[in-house]
Amino acid sequence: MSRTKVDLKDPAFAAFLAFLVPGLGHFYQRRMFKALLYSACILGTFFTGLRIGHGQVVYFHWKQADNRTYAYLCQVWAGLPALPALAQSHLLRSKEAFDANYVSNEFSGPFQGNLLDAKGNVIGEISGTVEIRPDRNETANNRPAWSGTIRGTLKTPAGTRNIEGEVRRGGDHERWVLDPAVAPWPVRRVFGRFDETSDGGGAPVRGRIEGGIPRSLWDSYEAPLQDPRPSDSGSDASDLDRAHRELGGRFELGVVYTMIAGLLNILAIYDAYEGPAYEDEEDDEKTDTPPPDAGPEKT
């Protein structure tokens, strides 16, 4: 039962709006101060936490019992900003979208990276575009594989020139990798063997390439961190390991911030539904001074 004289309009609808976007329910009820306060505080806390955790602290993962994201049960109350995590989970994405080296269809995108020789020395910096396509021959052997073409410019200490070449996975070495299509990092890494096909005026450049393609917001926002798999090996086997290694204590800080934002919105939702817990007149009896004309009513 509401103890307030505030006009709550349709409380259930207001509570629903307050869940979707913190402060929106109060905006609907024309409680502008609270709408601003809730939206600034809760959304500010949520996105600050997301920023602290480099976008890797809000995701939904429930299949593997050891790595369930119980924190998401708190974060989800932040509403729309947290709901894409559900869409990014395996529920709405294909299983292969989270597999490294898997390419279902040819795609292209801007590329930025370094070209290295066999000993690992940097030859120069390549920027341009890359086209990646599935390697049907290798994939037929149950080994996800890909190859691609890079076109762009090679910048070396000697100067800058146009370059074109083939890039491919080139072996089972853990460093030869095309990152999964969906992951919480903004860049999809491409590490592979490079063979120049353009005529550079000298011996064609061969070596390895280490670079990346920018991920779209849809492919990275609240994408789940993947668990290690039995076939994985190497230091980057688990996304969770990589996130902890890169972020350190900031990972937990980000989780705590986003969890608190979600929990605070529960208070805001309840306030939109029921109104404030106390009438203003009930509070501060001791500190409030009585009005000057207060006194016993004369008959």
């Binding site: 307030t4 208070l267 805001a268 309840y270 404030p276 817990a277």
Partner: peptide
């Protein structure tokens, strides 16, 4: 936020 949920 807590105080806002208590008072108007």
């Amino acid at each position: 936020v807590y105080s806002a949920s208590r008072y108007e």
